[in-house]
């Protein structure tokens, strides 16, 4: 397994707020979608075997942002990691900007799927992991979903399927800020556990805990990491 570095680049992380402000202006509290920021940072900084010059490498790890709504954190991390010119952030959502309120893989270097409509990323990730396995590749597939996104039944088709197929190069990250109206009694992880997934629930702001969860051994079965964010916290 290719691992970038077990030690995070925290000075790089400190540069994120300035990148964020290029999209949101000076409204410091307009941190919509920052619930995903720490997860995204740890993945791109320490976990994913990817780089801007290998976006077409068939052996790269795949990161699929299923919860495409509120993509500022994603764009900021892509800019910090060299996939985007930071100046691109200044004109996001303009007519000729590649950056919209929902990411488009055709327009943005390094974006693996176009998302926005909820419940599509996890089934696509299952197919991607199946395809990589069928081709004998060891690249991993990570997919990020939100707890409310799990309302969509398509996810549950994919959760059951991935468990039965033993997709051990597949990792789902559920960013759980308890935003679903009806919630998940017993916790989000239970929905995956009963279908045969290995599960890990961690503080979604704790970089070392996230890193440890993402890099744990899960031989023979897929892994879900539930990254808990305080209710209402962004």
């Amino acid at each position: 397994m290719a691992v970038k570095s077990s030690v995070g680049n925290e000075s790089g992380f400190a540069a994120i707020p300035a990148l964020f402000r290029r999209m949101t202006g000076d409204e410091k509290h307009e941190w919509a979608a920052a619930s995903t920021l720490d997860v995204l940072w740890v993945l791109y900084d320490r976990v994913l075997d990817v780089s801007p010059d290998r976006v077409d490498d068939p052996d790269r790890d795949r990161f699929l942002l299923s919860k495409g709504h509120g993509p500022m954190a994603y764009y900021a991390v892509l800019a910090a990691k060299g996939y985007l010119e930071p100046s691109t952030l200044d004109t996001w959502t303009a007519w000729d900007s590649p950056l919209g309120q929902h990411p488009d893989r055709v327009l943005v270097n390094g974006v693996e799927i176009s998302s926005g409509s909820l419940g599509h990323g996890l089934p696509i990730a299952v197919g991607n992991a199946l395809g990589l396995r069928a081709q004998g590749r060891t690249a991993r597939t990570f997919v990020l979903v939100g707890d409310a996104e799990l309302d969509e039944g398509s996810n549950h088709e994919a959760i059951a399927l991935a468990g039965r197929l033993g997709l051990d190069r597949l990792v789902t990250v559920v960013v759980d800020n308890k935003s679903g109206t009806y919630g998940w009694p017993g916790g989000v992880a239970r929905r995956f556990e009963i279908e045969g997934w290995q599960t890990s629930t961690v503080d979604g702001k704790d970089h070392d805990a996230l890193y440890g969860a993402f890099t744990q051994d899960h031989t023979g079965r897929p892994l879900v990491v539930v990254a808990e964010i305080g209710k209402g916290e962004r």
Binding site: P123, I124, V126, G127, N128, G131, E157
Partner: peptide
Amino acid sequence: HERVFNVGIREQALVGVGSGLALSGM
């Protein structure tokens, strides 16, 4: 066959998995 995948009675996953296979190069 190792490349024939039956997803069960899951038609959203049927098409989503097909897309993922295509994204992986198949």
